[in-house]
Amino acid sequence: MSGVCGELARLGVATVYEASGRRGLVDASFVQVVPGSRVAGPARTVLCGQDDNLMVHAVMERVRPGDVLVITMPEPAPVALVGELLAVQAKTHGAAGVLVDASVRDLEELRELGLPVWARWVRVRGATKTEVGRLDVPVEVGGARISPGDIVVLDADGAVVVEAGRAGEVLEAGRAREERERDFRKKLEAGELSYDLHGLREVVEGGTS
């Protein structure tokens, strides 16, 4: 699976999204804490209590190398569920990345640490640690359902989710799309127009006399 995840990360969010049939889009804006980072890995999901990060502490003993931690609450809110010390634990236990559908803080320290993190907000407002949530259950982020083990792909464009059983199929389609785009790019660099290559001239001008 690590080879598949590495290839999906290399292809990137846009290509994977298109190759998957435009499924699994996490339709929300996220701060890419570490510029230039891109990852893909099986989701390790965390459903916290509202404005509470007790379960983020609890999940650390379950983290396995290559996991992407997906941290959520019943409703997204600008409350910091992750800071430097939790990120240190995640990195130490081998997490490939972290997606936080809430806030992070300690931004400079997180960047220095280098663990790829995406967050809905950067805010210092602290979370409580009193409400027991759930681990390794399906969650929803940006309209996308993410089940434990689904592949989460993250880069500068955002995030997309690939159902675990479709990873090989989507990877094959992504590689084929990459090859088509490589050939298409050569034609554009030679001076041809997407207006013609996509048949769009006929759409715009075909009905005119």
Rank of each mutant, 00 (worst) to 15 (best):
L8N: 10
L8V: 09
L8I: 14
L11K: 08
L11Q: 05
G12P: 10
G12R: 05
V13N: 09
V13H: 06
A14M: 12
A14E: 15
T15D: 11
V16A: 08
Y17T: 08
E18H: 13
A19C: 04
G21T: 11
R23D: 09
R23C: 10
G24V: 07
L25S: 01
V26N: 08
D27Y: 05
S29Q: 09
S29H: 11
F30S: 01
F30W: 09
V31M: 05
V31D: 03
V31C: 01
V31P: 00
Q32A: 11
Q32S: 09
S37L: 02
S37E: 11
S37F: 01
R38D: 01
V39D: 03
G41V: 03
P42T: 04
R44D: 00
R44H: 01
R44F: 02
R44M: 07
R44Q: 10
R44W: 01
C48W: 02
C48Q: 02
G49F: 03
G49Y: 00
Q50M: 12
D51R: 11
D51S: 09
V56E: 15
A58E: 15
A58T: 03
V59Y: 01
E61A: 13
V63F: 00
R64I: 00
D67Y: 06
L69V: 00
L69Y: 00
M73N: 07
P74C: 14
P74H: 15
P74R: 14
E75N: 12
V79C: 12
A80R: 09
L81C: 07
V82F: 09
V82Q: 02
V82T: 02
G83F: 05
E84D: 12
L85K: 15
L85Y: 15
L85M: 15
L85S: 15
A87C: 05
A87K: 12
V88Q: 12
Q89N: 12
Q89V: 04
T92Q: 13
H93F: 14
G94L: 04
G94A: 08
A95E: 04
A95W: 04
A95T: 04
A95S: 07
A95H: 03
A96L: 01
G97A: 14
G97N: 06
L99F: 07
V100A: 02
V100C: 14
V100Q: 07
R105G: 00
R105W: 04
D106H: 15
D106R: 03
E108N: 13
E109Q: 11
E109R: 13
R111G: 06
L113S: 08
L113K: 13
G114I: 14
G114S: 12
G114F: 11
L115N: 00
P116L: 08
P116K: 09
V117Y: 03
V117W: 00
V117S: 01
R120Y: 06
R120E: 02
W121I: 07
W121T: 04
W121A: 13
V124F: 11
T128M: 02
K129A: 13
K129C: 08
T130M: 13
T130H: 11
T130W: 14
E131L: 14
E131K: 15
E131Q: 14
V132K: 13
G133I: 02
G133H: 10
R134W: 12
L135W: 10
D136R: 07
V137K: 01
P138G: 07
V139Q: 02
V139R: 03
